[in-house]
Write a protein that binds this DNA or RNA. Structure first.
Lengths: 168, 168
DNA sequence: TATTGTTATACTCTATAACTATA
DNA sequence: TATAGTTATAGAGTATAACAATA
């Protein structure tokens, strides 16, 4: 394990840099295709993908923001773009009048379906082609654990808002 | 391995999403500290870190751009900012008059040194705390292989420039 | 009083294309 | 003709703070 008073050892540093480099390269490559195939940015694709995966294709704005690791205002902006293109709809939640439910439209689902094959091919070619089954199992296991650990920390949308956390 | 005609299986999809989510959360957390500790963005820190690690603290612009996964003009912009703050210097290369060598200044090294402890603590707390030694070894091994595989693809700065790659 | 979401605004970043200079 | 880098410009994205509405 790691000594909390020391720096990272060589192995840790290497793994950290490799992680960031791999995800960066992967995101860049994938984003290029998403843009060409469906005029979608990475964030927009993530929003749509999460909605498609969600029960009934709907999620609250805040849950979406947390999932995508995004600020609220940023999500409002992106949701506005997707709304304008008819890929999602927004409506007040019946449960909590403050909340807004975001729902994928059929057009949204179709776009995801159209874009997905190329996307998946991209990911396979770059990420999984260099991986054995054991690699995959190991990677998936560690990352799932790490994600859970990170998610235990308060999510981004819980950041202090105007008026809180001031000095004095 | 993966069947090139099929989609990703559940395990692959999970690993892919976990990878992107973990790196995204990590980068976000780390960037917050870098900004607070040294008024550095993620890219700026990466540029400085790479220079500090390089022999004699110097690298060509293009090598830097490839390493950081960045466009040339983007790097010029960032280098301009770092230059203005006295953290790097730029000078024509003696070998190739077209090239520009970027060098970290003492101030740049000091800033990296000042920011590094907090940075490292952040990474340890989020990434390595949830990992055993075996996890680390596995993760590092896979990622190094994947990175090499990805890097086998032409780097970003080699993207077609004005006038190349036109249809016809 | 806290939470959800939107808006206005200002700013940072990024990419494209045009340009200069050297190989 | 190709490569290295800069610049101008224009656009996308992002965050902050202020705001309205509901809990």
């Amino acid at each position: 394990m790691s000594d909390p008073t020391a720096g990272l050892n060589t192995e840790q540093l290497g793994a950290y840099f490799a992680l960031m480099e791999v995800s960066s390269l992967l995101q860049y490559a994938v984003e290029e295709h998403l843009r060409a195939d469906g005029d979608l940015s990475w964030v927009q694709f993530q929003i749509l993908a999460r909605l498609v995966d969600a029960p009934e294709g709907r999620l609250r704005m805040t849950d979406l923001a947390d999932g995508v690791v995004y600020s609220r205002s940023g999500l409002t902006y992106q949701a506005g773009l997707l709304d304008k293109r008819g890929l999602i709809t927004r409506s007040p939640s019946p449960d909590d009048e403050r909340s807004v439910m975001v729902t994928v439209t059929d057009a949204g689902r179709e776009l995801v379906a159209r874009v997905l094959p190329g996307h998946v091919a991209q990911v396979r070619g770059l990420l999984f082609e260099a991986m054995s089954d054991e690699d995959l199992a190991a990677l998936g296991g560690v990352l799932a654990r790490v994600r859970a650990h990170m998610r235990a920390t308060p999510p981004r949308s819980a950041k202090p808002r105007a008026g809180r956390n001031r000095a004095g």
